[in-house]
Design a protein around this nucleic acid. Structure first.
Length: 267
DNA sequence: CGAGTTTGACCTGCGC
DNA sequence: GCGCAGGTCAAACTCG
């Protein structure tokens, strides 16, 4: 009887010791996790501020491209034929033959080139076109080769056409890339044109164009990825992460053992 | 000869 | 105010 009671007491003591040591381990783990959280938190703050900088830069760019404020004409300044333009300039991407160095995008309209300029951010010249299908059509477009892929033309459309259906591409239109000569003549709105322009491409070209269209977003992602990779290269961060993963695995196992020992049902 | 292109000059807005 | 960069003009040129 006495032996039985002593045995029970010993078992209880062992359990108490086990629980104490487990409690100690959990406390230590808790402390480690807290430190890790602080490290992650500071890294997250850095990452967030970095992302905000990127967004700011993007916003600047968007404002430069997309500002569509109503023109206020000063009587003393040269008068220009200005028309309200669409809220967002439409961009379409057209794959051309690598040997074709012309800046002509056939989109079903007749365009008259009125200028060409080399811009700072792209060595390829930017060509300026006005719609010549109607005398006072406000539609304009800019065509420039893609910075990253010279075989892709980026056409930026400004303003709406104030005349009806699309023309068949005229024979007078100089040679160039052919996209819209395959377009049905129903496209009168920019979105439709964008879709049609893409749909007129081959599957490979379409995939490529879509890739380019997402390039802007991709570039942002690349910046973020670069930052993330720098985090990964950080030995402290990697160590902390590895420890956390290891602890999670071993912790789960230990927790299972503990649950079994204490006859606590698993969740 | 007319329509379209080229290209240097000029205009304009914006940041510093 | 100044300089820079993007956008536009217009005379000269090219081509069918």
């Amino acid at each position: 009887m006495l032996v039985q009671v002593l045995n029970t007491a010993v078992i209880m003591d062992e359990k108490v010791e086990s629980l104490k040591s487990e409690l100690q381990r959990v406390r230590e783990e808790n402390n480690t996790l807290r430190v890790m959280f602080e490290v992650l938190s500071s890294k997250y703050t850095k990452l967030e501020s970095h992302l905000q900088e990127i967004n700011k830069e993007q916003h600047k760019g968007m404002n430069q491209i997309g500002s569509v404020t109503e023109p206020i004409l000063d009587v003393n300044k040269r008068r220009r034929l200005e028309f309200p333009t669409a809220k967002k300039p439409l961009q379409i991407f057209v794959r051309t033959h690598p040997m074709d160095d012309s800046l002509i995008v056939k989109d079903g309209y007749q365009w008259r080139k009125y200028g060409q300029k080399v811009t700072k951010d792209n060595a390829s010249p930017r060509a300026y076109f006005r719609c010549s299908m109607a005398p006072i059509c406000p539609a304009k477009k800019k065509v420039q080769r893609c910075l990253h892929d010279k075989s892709i033309l980026v056409a930026t459309y400004d303003g709406e056409h104030n005349h009806g259906a699309l023309h068949e591409p005229s024979s007078s239109t100089p040679r160039g890339s052919s996209v819209a000569n395959q377009l049905p003549s129903i496209a009168n709105d920019k979105e439709a044109m964008n879709i049609l322009a893409l749909s007129a491409l081959s599957q490979t070209d379409r995939r490529h164009s879509e890739e380019v269209m997402h390039q802007h977003n991709h570039e942002t992602n690349v910046k973020v990825e670069e930052y993330v990779s720098s985090l990964i290269k950080d030995p402290d961060f990697t160590m902390s992460l590895a420890e956390a993963v290891a602890r999670t695995i071993t912790g789960e196992l230990k927790q299972q053992d503990l649950n079994l020992n204490l006859n606590i049902p698993e969740e």
